[in-house]
């Protein structure tokens, strides 16, 4: 996976400074899971199957990531905060049965996230 300043995972050469380390690894940040409408761990596992388990890790606040995945149990996506977003330049947000606000059946969430990552349609940092 590559990232560049236009907000695409692929297709560019210039990478942000934060992507110099671990640029193939997607940092995953979970919400707290108070009343989840989806099985967030199942999405994580499914995504690992599709992309390779070594491409995903629970976000370490001390290291930079080329891309981040917010795995939130409902549309509120309460973990979507500026301090979290600053840890990566590109993001995909799962908020309940939706990816970046678009409704997706729960069983297809991992597939939709993987497709988004592979096609480079992640959302640039906007905070």
């Amino acid at each position: 996976m590559e990232a560049h300043t236009t907000g695409r995972f692929r297709g560019g050469t210039a990478r942000p400074a934060s992507a110099r380390s671990g640029d193939h690894v997607i940092g995953v940040k979970y919400c707290g899971g108070c009343n989840p409408r989806i099985d967030r761990r199942a999405v994580f596992r499914g995504l690992g199957d599709l992309l390779g388990a070594d491409r995903l890790e629970v976000m370490d606040p001390e290291r930079p990531y080329a891309a981040g995945l917010l795995l939130c149990g409902c549309e509120r996506a309460c973990a979507d905060r500026p301090a979290v977003r600053r840890r990566a330049p590109l993001w995909v947000v799962v908020g309940g049965p939706a990816v970046d606000g678009e409704p997706v059946e729960e069983a297809l969430l991992a597939e939709a996230v993987a497709a988004k990552i592979k096609s480079g349609n992640a959302t640039p940092l906007s905070f």
Binding site: V28, K29, Y30, C31, G32, G33, C34, R40, R41, V58, L71, C78, A79
Partner: peptide, 8 residues
């Protein structure tokens, strides 16, 4: 647990 630390 990573999936709960944001609240816990």
């Amino acid at each position: 647990m990573p999936e709960h630390e944001d609240l816990m």
